[in-house]
Design a protein around this nucleic acid. Structure first.
Lengths: 189, 189
DNA sequence: ACCTGAACACCGTTCAAGT
DNA sequence: ACCTGAACACCGTTCAAGT
């Protein structure tokens, strides 16, 4: 099941780690569309070396996102679910994390489609995290029926995409999320 | 108020129209990120000529969108507002038009920010159209309070962005829109 | 086994030179 | 006044040649 690298030659291992560190920096600053050639140059390797370790931009991104995935999982566990505002806060945190890097929400959305996308793990992790929070909210009596977490995830991704494209003020993002939460907890039958 | 071209030399006028026609074709096929050099080449002009007529990709896009704007306005006027499903349909049509070209929803979202964006007209038109539909729904007694059309527009843009990035099946899009509509018509106080 | 870096086919954008 | 097209500085991606 594990796709972790087995035993790399010492120089290869070092290069790999250095590329990953540099990529994290550069992507944090410039977004998920940052130049791969620039990352290679800053890491002190030829472009071919980057491609050898990470055959696609998504493969690189997936590894960079490892710490990101942890943040989502932690946030889900510690998220309070006492009031409806708590849930709006949670969605906001989810959207905020999803747009932690510019272009990330779009990259994630694109990966929904693709069964083989390297980003699938990150995507599934955020979906599971979200399901967990809403399940806890239901157990706490805050909402009275199950919500479809796939739909929630897609909606929140949409909010994140608009927010980062248009650099919306936080209260406009919150308005969007509140509508979504109201829609989720209103019976539509 | 009008920024229409005044009196162009005959060859310039012809070039301009040909660029526009070709751009409409190419953008329809390849999306809003289509190569400008390719558009110029297909239109039989040098790249400099395209830039002379349309100083930015957005300026070109704004003109290509003229017929698009008409479609939104017509759709708004003829949209039935008798049932809640009618409203979901309307949002679906809006989202569908917004992603008529691949990348259009993202381009529109980016223009929300920028006061001087050439896409502002198209964006405002869709906002006005949406306000019109919901106002008619309110008059028809379908909903009982005003909705914030800015928030609606942003949410629908988000749905359109996710839908085209992930190429979602129609029923998933509909699920998203239904949640939004429920959220809009539920009292949140 | 791994790395280098030149090379290729593209971008968007500019601008001297032409008509 | 307008157009051309070469030129520039970039992309992503590949692959022979090196170690």
């Amino acid at each position: 099941m594990s796709t972790e690298p087995r035993e790399l030659r010492a120089d290869a291992r070092e290069n790999r780690l250095r590329i990953l560190a540099v990529a994290t920096d550069v992507i944090e600053q410039q977004g998920t569309m940052a130049s791969l050639n620039e990352i290679a140059k800053r890491a002190g390797v030829g472009p071919g070396t980057l491609y050898r370790h990470f055959p696609s931009r998504e493969a690189l991104l997936a590894e960079v996102l490892a710490t990101w995935v942890k943040r989502v999982e932690e946030a889900a566990q510690s998220a309070p679910v006492r009031t409806r505002d708590d849930l709006v806060d949670w969605l906001g945190r989810l959207a905020g994390i999803a747009s932690g890097y510019r272009g990330l929400a779009a990259s994630m959305a694109a990966s929904m489609d693709d069964e083989a996308s390297p980003l699938r793990h990150a995507h599934r992790a955020s979906l599971v995290a979200n399901t967990l929070v809403f399940e806890r909210a239901r157990e706490a009596g805050l909402i009275d029926h199950a919500v479809d977490s796939g739909t929630v995830a897609r909606l929140v991704t949409g909010v994140a995409m608009v927010a980062e494209q248009a650099t919306l003020p936080p209260e406009q993002v919150r308005d969007m999320l509140r509508v979504i939460l109201d829609g989720l907890t209103a019976r539509s039958d």
